[in-house]
Amino acid sequence: MDLSLSTRTVGDRTVVEVGGEIDVYTAPKLREQLVELVNDGNFHLVVDMEGVDFLDSTGLGVLVGGLKRVRAHEGSLRLVCNQERILKIFRITGLTKVFPIHTSVEEAVAATD
């Protein structure tokens, strides 16, 4: 399965809906998308991971890179994820302390801090 990406705007947030597998082969596509969004002036991102079937450290690296980019513009990057197998990877790597992780897009969009 490949990676699918779609974006939409909700208020001042940009929601990136990710589906499929994020690995060493597909992660560059996600990186490009995040870089493009930030270059276009979208600094408050919500990455919806509910459709993600697989995530590895390459994918984590891309998300961390995205976070660094938005923070350079005083922006934010929030994740939406309820899948235990994906959350586990964030826990193992200690990234649950780095990313705000929400249970729904609505919650992430409404969050201020």
Binding site: D56, S57, T58, G61, I89, I92, T93
Partner: peptide
């Protein structure tokens, strides 16, 4: 990219 390399190993040893 030493950071990515280490993250991969960190995931393996955590799992």
């Amino acid at each position: 990219e030493p950071e990515e390399d280490e993250m991969g190993l960190a995931v393996i040893s955590g799992l």
